[in-house]
Write a protein that binds this DNA or RNA. Sequence first.
DNA 1: CTAATGACCATTA
DNA 2: ATAATGGCCATTA
Length: 111
Amino acid sequence: MASFREKVYLTVRRIPRGRVAAYAAVAREAGRPRAFRAVGNILNANPTIKNIGISKYRSVKVPCHRVVRSDGRVGGYVYGTKAKTKLLRSEGIKITGNRVDPKNILSVISK
DNA sequence: CTAATGACCATTA
DNA sequence: ATAATGGCCATTA
C-alpha cells in the first residue's frame, strides 16, 4: 500500500519543467485535500536531498523546487528561497519580487 | 499511546 | 502592503 508520502513524491514527479504547483494542489492530487501542511514537511525530507531509506525511492529525483505557495510566493526550500528561485528561473519560470507568474501555476497535475 | 513539528492556507487587523 | 491567528494533518520522536 502506498503511504501518503509516497503519493506526494509520485505527484511532484509529474510536475513538468517550466511549471509549478501549489502545496495544496499536490495534497489534493495525492488524495488528502487538507494535508497541504504535511506536504511541506514531507518534501522537507525529499529523497533528492537525503535518502529516507525506502528502496523504491532510492536515487529517484523529486523536483520539490517546483512546489510553491497557493498565493504564488515561492515558499521554502532546504537550501533557501534564493536557491529555489534561481532553479525555477533556470527552468524558464518568470518570477517578479517573490512571486511566480500565475500562468506557470498548474491547478491540475496531469500525467 | 501522546506530543511536537512545520518548505502551508485563509482570514482578519 | 505586513503581521498575527487559528486551523489543518502526516510523520516522527
